[in-house]
Simulated assay, not measured.
Amino acid sequence: MSLPMQGSPGTARRTWPTGYLVTLAVLVAGGLMIDMFAFYLSVFATDSCGSSDDPAPVCTTFGMLSMWALPWIGLGVAAAVSAGLGLLAWRRGRTPWVHLPIGVVLYVASLVGAWTIMVS
């Protein structure tokens, strides 16, 4: 089976949503920088941990690992959801841009979760 040529009459060849994917890549790069800053802050959130009977959630092993991992996991999930939904919409002939805010909301939710653990 041969693919139709781009200039053939009666055929419309769709191109990849390059602008959407480039925008998503730029947002992911910005998210990586934000995650590095959040990790830097989270390292110092454990300064108040000591030997006490009732440790704060930030001082437990689960709390520390959650605080460190949530932004990174959130970024990965947000990028995957935005890319997946956007490309699925593009394949169906719809605009992928409406799915970009879904990823942003998921990423911000992961940052809020990490911040909540940090200040507890």
Rank of each mutant, 00 (worst) to 15 (best):
S2T: 11
M5L: 14
M5V: 13
Q6H: 14
G7E: 14
P9F: 12
P9V: 14
R13D: 11
P17K: 14
T18K: 14
L21Q: 09
L21V: 15
V22L: 15
V22I: 15
T23H: 09
T23L: 15
L24M: 02
A25R: 00
L27M: 08
G31L: 04
L32R: 10
D35Y: 01
M36Q: 07
A38Y: 00
A38C: 01
F39R: 03
Y40G: 08
Y40F: 13
L41R: 14
V43F: 12
A45Y: 04
D47E: 15
C49M: 15
S52W: 11
D53S: 14
D53H: 11
D54E: 12
P55F: 09
P55W: 06
V58L: 07
V58H: 05
T60A: 11
T61L: 13
T61R: 15
G63C: 13
M64G: 12
S66M: 11
M67F: 00
W68G: 04
A69H: 00
P71I: 07
W72P: 05
I73E: 04
V77T: 01
A79P: 02
V81T: 03
G84Q: 04
L87M: 12
L88K: 02
L88R: 08
A89Y: 07
W90R: 08
R92W: 03
G93D: 09
T95E: 09
P96G: 06
W97I: 03
L100P: 06
I102D: 04
G103S: 00
V104M: 14
V108C: 05
V112Q: 00
A114N: 03
A114G: 00
A114H: 00
W115I: 08
T116S: 10
T116W: 03
